[in-house]
Design a protein around this nucleic acid. Structure first.
Lengths: 141, 141
DNA sequence: TTTGATATTGATATTCATTATCATTTGTTA
DNA sequence: TAACAAATGATAATGAATATCAATATCAAA
């Protein structure tokens, strides 16, 4: 819930331990800027250390979310994807319904309007997700 | 995928059959304007006809989506909710993270900006979902 | 260092929503 | 009404997310 800058800082704040599994998973995840499913990250991390278990990958991703270093995205099909978050940054997504391509976009005007809408309904805004579904130039019929 | 005005019309267009189960489920669903999970609708429809099965409720909701008379919403927790759609109308949602209250809102400016964003990225927009998470006036700490 | 309390790991089991299967029943058309 | 195709409902299968638990690793304090 807090937002320290590093995963190590988060572990310390929470009294959690630093392990080589966590280090491997986190550094690989943060280095690649991809929208990982647990399974995808698990498979790729296997190349670094084949002994790392699926559950550990899943748990570590949850820790990253709690640390404010990742967010969960559910675009369609009920599969959760995790993406890394840069300090103070927010973006939304365009998703191609055919090829699955994911494009990130930022739009301050939309953000401002969302804040306004929340205010009008007497809501304290905590988070917001905006997903546009469509067809990319390559997949258009 | 097409958008006829009635469920009966949809069934005819698709060569599907009209059954009393479908009638019961659809008329109950459309009459209540709620964000139903399959389980919730199943339980409530049991009061009308206890013989209706879970699978039929699920299948009928999927038909309603295909008919353009309902949409699926996934707010959090991986549970799919279905809500009825009025002709030519679109709205987005404000969700309270504490009590789960769901408020619908419409904002043309946001819609217009979304269309613009899609165009800028050379996307043909098919659908869009915007969810604001926060705390309603009653749940604010 | 070594110890000991405590957290973590990894294999596996469990949960739960969604979807598929299939024998039986029902609706529709000729 | 008969014949065929589709729908139903019970149940099984699927698959992602989470829980369990014995074995192991981490880290602060002695």
């Amino acid at each position: 819930m807090s937002s320290p800058k590093t995963f190590q800082g988060y572990l310390q704040d929470k009294g959690l331990k630093s392990t080589h599994q966590r280090d491997d998973i986190v550094s690989y995840f943060l280095q690649k800027s991809k929208h990982f499913t647990v399974k995808e990250l698990y498979r790729e991390v296997q190349n670094i250390d084949p002994k790392i278990g699926y559950a550990t990958v899943h748990r570590t991703l949850k820790l990253l979310v709690d640390a404010g270093l990742a967010t969960e995205c559910r675009f369609s099909g009920g599969i959760t994807r995790f993406e890394s978050v840069k300090e103070g940054e927010h973006h939304d997504h365009l998703v191609c319904l055919k090829c699955g391509k994911i494009i990130e976009f930022e739009n301050d005007k939309i953000e401002q309007l969302q804040i306004k809408v929340a205010k009008e309904h007497n809501f304290t805004l905590a988070d917001h997700k905006c997903v546009l579904y469509g067809y990319c130039s390559g997949c258009r019929e």
